[in-house]
Computed example of a mutant assay.
Amino acid sequence: MKYFEEAKYIWKNYVPKSGQADTVEGELIRAIERLRYEAQNNGNCNWDEGFELFCHYLWEVLNDEETFDHNVLREIKMDVDTLLNFDAPYLDDDVYDRISDHIIEWTFTHKGPIKREKDPKQYR
């Protein structure tokens, strides 16, 4: 992971102990780490709509042509699709780390923190 310290900063400063983050950056990091934990520690046995919402949120925000070129967007989409395949939990760190790095690259472009409205459907 190229941007471990930057991701750690967002985790410590923008991800609450429970519930959704108030910033886009915080929610992105919260989403990828919740997905990582669910796959690696639980084998996706708790997978439900909340985890799908995390995947869709990651793609919705990171699908950003201002920040990423076509090849990177294709890679992000493939990585998110890998995580959406809950029947085959992805256990290695590479996909999670790569998405985390793209989150940090997105934050470099958008120079936040950026406030967000909480999703009433997201209970995870």
Rank of each mutant, 00 (worst) to 15 (best):
G19I: 02
E75A: 10
D69T: 12
R98H: 15
D81E: 15
E33N: 00
H70S: 15
F86T: 09
N46Y: 15
L84A: 10
G43K: 07
N85R: 00
Y9C: 07
Y37L: 12
Y96F: 14
L58P: 02
K77V: 05
D64E: 09
N13Y: 07
L84H: 02
R34S: 06
D101A: 03
Y37V: 15
D93C: 03
F86Y: 11
H70F: 09
L91S: 14
E27V: 05
G50I: 07
R98W: 13
T82M: 11
E52K: 10
E52M: 13
Y90M: 14
D79G: 05
D101W: 04
V24F: 04
P16S: 04
D87V: 12
Y14I: 04
T67L: 12
N46F: 15
A88I: 11
Y37A: 12
A88S: 00
G43E: 14
Y37F: 14
V24E: 00
T67P: 04
N46H: 09
N71D: 14
D22N: 12
D101R: 00
R36V: 04
S100E: 14
M78T: 08
R74S: 10
G26H: 10
E49G: 10
E75C: 01
D94W: 11
T82I: 00
Q20M: 07
T82Q: 01
V15S: 00
I10C: 07
R36Q: 12
D79L: 07
L35I: 05
D92S: 07
G26F: 11
N85P: 00
L58I: 11
A21H: 01
E38Q: 12
D87W: 08
L35K: 01
T23C: 03
Q20H: 08
E38L: 05
D94M: 06
L91R: 09
K77M: 09
D94T: 10
T67C: 09
T67N: 06
Q40I: 14
D69C: 09
G43Q: 07
L84Q: 11
N71I: 13
D94C: 13
F51V: 04
N46S: 09
L91D: 10
E52S: 14
W59H: 05
N46W: 15
E60W: 09
H56K: 14
D87L: 08
F68W: 11
V80W: 04
E66F: 10
D69L: 09
N46E: 13
P16D: 08
P16G: 03
F54L: 11
C55W: 02
E25T: 08
E52F: 10
E52T: 15
D97V: 14
D92T: 13
